[in-house]
Design a protein around this nucleic acid. Structure first.
Lengths: 344, 344
DNA sequence: GTCCTTTGCACAAACGTTTGCGGTGGGGTG
DNA sequence: CACCCCACCGCAAACGTTTGTGCAAAGGAC
């Protein structure tokens, strides 16, 4: 290990409009206009000269200072429960890409589903005068959306819905029905659901859709067979264990999140059964690890990238004051090895 | 689905120092001082009055404007290959938490290991006048660190090292040796390595440590048994398949990333073998899904949270101009079901 | 009572932009 | 040749802070 050269050169004084103006022998405002997207009222040769000078000097517009003047920080805030949740990480990735393409930066905050922490992070965002917020962690009984509305800060919900607020989500109710239809078609009659957080619309809707479809086919889904949980692998393990220790354990399990399904796999194995052959399993979101698991996982696919992109588009429209409607993306069932045909 | 009330109230004009000054009948500078951390030179009753007023009016300091004046944006940039890599997401989470606790915000950028894209994102960060950068995606032959140094922007590497630059990482060489020692002790003599990206110090060091330990015990690790890869589950699958189709497939595999191990599990199964019983498997990083997998995965644990936290501390020290040294965190082997004792 | 020190505050400049407005020059039209 | 118009550019204010300096009043020592 070499010695670390911790002594770094003093930070160079950044080159500003004034620097360029000095070199070009024009007024600073002329430089500003020449560098703007469409330089109106400035001679084309001046524009060329200024731009070359800017490039040569390594000029970089101070967007903070510009924001002070224009009132727009060109920054959008993103609230997520946890970035270590692959689903949210994927959505955030596409949000960031879309925002970046539109000339906006993003700041993301883990709220950990903790109201106090969330407040603090949202406060920090507002202190940076963000232009809009994408809320990915909305909870029933959540106040952030209302507060933003009353403050007049544009926002849009993603991933999870909330009655009366603009949102971009997948049709979770329909996704739940797809899972139920598949299991019913395979002949399963006694099934379990790992339902996720019931305060989140995702957990609620997916479970509800599944239940409705199942019951409307004439079968019942008793309470002990539906167990709430967090959205992590460990809680999938405990919830799965709970299901497998029922007097009559289910022959199939619907987990409303792939990570829950991953945990359930462990629980099924711990119960001495084989995933797929003995107990069918369906996950949700179709993370790219789902297809490469030891036993490839059947999952309800939702287009996370589209959700991210469209939420940015919706937010930008709202920021421009254009009317915008919520969007519901269609889910799709991807059948793999964890839901084989029932043996006779 | 209700109609979306997309019409939001006009954004309220934010309350500034001037607003408070008006109400308090003092000068704006007095308000600024009264609101600062230690209000020196201002009467204690004035301080109290101003602070109450600020709270009542819902004042929020504009950190962008403050940054313009002070020259510090109180923002640190974080460069990662991908946030959907759980390892990086975990590190970023702790970076963000630590930075936030120190009064700094963070902006993160996916660089996708693409130089051009990376340039653009780094440029955007510099345009926001970030106070420092944490580089999580350094590659051999990478120029960003050099550029930052020459620009005088404080930075620190995390996760991956680069000769001659300050970094906070785990001892990957040692981690590789731990894995080799474990497999040797179990009696494995013909082993394979899924080596990750050889341009990243993580992939390189872990593989090197493993090889050294293995060879110094008197056994060989021929080239076909070491296959490079990306750091994802799918590439773990293909690399694993490559190993399993060798004329004499290995009896154990060391994957330098848990997600690679996850993919390898699928490959082992596709080859008609059982993970653990037929082919031993060791992962790296000990993600929390490792322990809850159908067959719990033996893995080399590295303390990701500590890496994040300490990288922030190192960066803050560098920003204050204090001398700082690279840190090497010790890895730890966590033995689980994928490396059972060899049957006689 | 005078002088000096301290306390408490106001003034103003500066950070880097953007932008409405005004002014100068040149070219075209009548 | 006089006029007007337009292209091009400079001037200055403003965004919300922070901070060095100056100034007045209050308090103490003699």
């Amino acid at each position: 290990m070499k010695e670390d050269p911790s002594s770094q050169p003093a930070r160079a004084r950044p080159v500003t409009l004034a620097t360029i103006a000095g070199h070009a022998q024009v007024h600073i405002s002329t430089v500003s206009r020449a560098l703007s997207d469409d330089p109106v009222g400035i001679g084309s040769d001046t524009v060329k000269r200024v731009r070359e000078l800017a490039a040569a000097l390594g000029y970089r517009r101070d967007v903070g200072a510009a924001g002070l003047r224009t009132g727009s920080s060109r920054l959008i805030g993103v609230l997520v429960p946890r970035l270590t949740d692959l689903v949210l990480a994927s959505i955030y990735e596409s949000i960031d890409a879309a925002a970046s393409a539109a000339g906006y930066g993003t700041v993301v905050a883990n709220t950990l589903d903790d109201p106090e922490h969330r407040r603090a992070r949202l406060d920090a965002m507002l202190s940076r005068r963000i232009d809009g917020v994408i809320i990915g962690d909305s909870h029933s009984g959540d106040t952030a959306a209302h507060e933003l509305r009353s403050r007049g800060v544009p926002y849009v919900l993603v991933m999870r819905t909330l009655e009366g607020h603009l949102s971009v989500t997948t049709d979770d109710y329909r996704g739940g029905r797809l899972a139920a239809q598949h299991l019913l078609a395979l002949g399963h009659r006694r099934v379990g659901v790992i339902a996720g957080d019931q305060l989140a619309s995702t957990g609620r809707e997916r479970t509800l859709g599944f239940r409705r479809e199942f019951e409307s086919a004439g079968y019942s889904l008793p309470e002990p067979y539906v167990v709430a949980s967090a959205f992590s692998t460990p809680s999938g393990l405990t919830a799965g264990a709970e299901l497998m220790t029922l007097p009559e354990p289910p022959t199939a399990i619907f987990a409303v999140h792939d990570l829950l399904a991953l945990g359930a796999m462990g629980a099924i194995r711990d119960a001495g059964k084989r995933v797929g052959a003995d107990v069918a399993l369906i996950g949700y979101n179709d993370l790219d690890l789902a297809g490469t698991l030891p036993v490839p996982l059947t999952s309800v696919r939702s287009d996370l990238a589209a959700m991210g992109t469209q939420s940015v588009e919706a937010l930008l429209r709202t920021m421009r004051g254009e009317p915008t409607r919520s969007v519901l993306l269609p889910p799709e069932l991807v059948v793999r090895a964890t839901t084989p045909p029932l043996r006779a």
